[in-house]
Design a protein around this nucleic acid. Structure first.
Length: 189
DNA sequence: TGTATGATCGCCT
DNA sequence: GGCGATCATACAG
């Protein structure tokens, strides 16, 4: 079963990343609308899966519609959704949410009040949603995860740009955002 | 408004 | 030993 929230997670990661914009993600009842994603794939020098399986990225080579959680810069936890078939090594990084649920919990975890600073960046999403290694490899169709499809016939305006914070394949247009959203990690440029 | 830096873990050279 | 799919803070202009 690779379909979840109206999305086929066996599809290429850039298609999944595009389709995820506007989907509601909650972890333990805390979350919001996905407004920014980035796609990564096995033949992609910027991807953690590029060099093959390691202890860190093993979940990326697991079944689709599961979580891949990694530690960024030794400090932050970042959440990805695994795509394609098991063994392939593709995923989508969840970079920003528009908060809709559990705002008080997010403020407490993040230590800030401003709604626009709660989930506007992959590290911030990890902190606000209490993402840890314990969620690495867990299925997205079971608690604490919950994905709600966006309402039928209400596809948000999606804009495309280059990915952020990478030095390899820096010109690949695999960053997807809800156009005009105030909750992006950075403007589209 | 922009540029620099520290924190600190996993992987690679 | 160096370098990231980052963020908050400390400065300079």
């Amino acid at each position: 079963m690779t379909w979840l929230a109206g999305i086929d997670f066996a599809a290429p990661s850039h298609e999944v990343a595009h389709a995820l914009i506007g989907v509601e993600l909650q972890v333990g009842g805390v979350g919001g609308l996905i407004v920014e994603t980035e796609a990564y794939d096995r033949d992609d020098p910027a991807s953690h899966s590029h060099g093959g399986v390691t202890a860190r990225n093993a979940a990326m080579f697991g079944p689709p519609a599961h979580a891949y959680v990694y530690r960024s810069y030794g400090i932050h936890w970042c959440l990805n959704f695994v795509c394609r078939e098991a063994g392939h090594g593709a995923g989508v990084l969840i970079r920003a949410l528009q908060p809709t649920a559990g705002l008080d919990a997010m403020r407490a975890r993040r230590g800030v009040d401003d709604e626009r600073l709660l989930c506007s960046g992959p590290g911030r999403v990890g902190q606000a949603l209490a993402i840890t290694r314990a969620l690495d490899g867990r299925p997205l169709d079971a608690p604490p995860f919950e994905l709600r499809p966006r309402p039928a016939g209400s596809a948000p305006p999606v804009a495309v740009g280059v990915r952020i914070g990478i030095s390899k394949a820096a010109d690949v247009p695999w960053r997807f955002v809800w156009a005009g959203s105030r909750y992006l990690s950075r403007p589209l440029r």
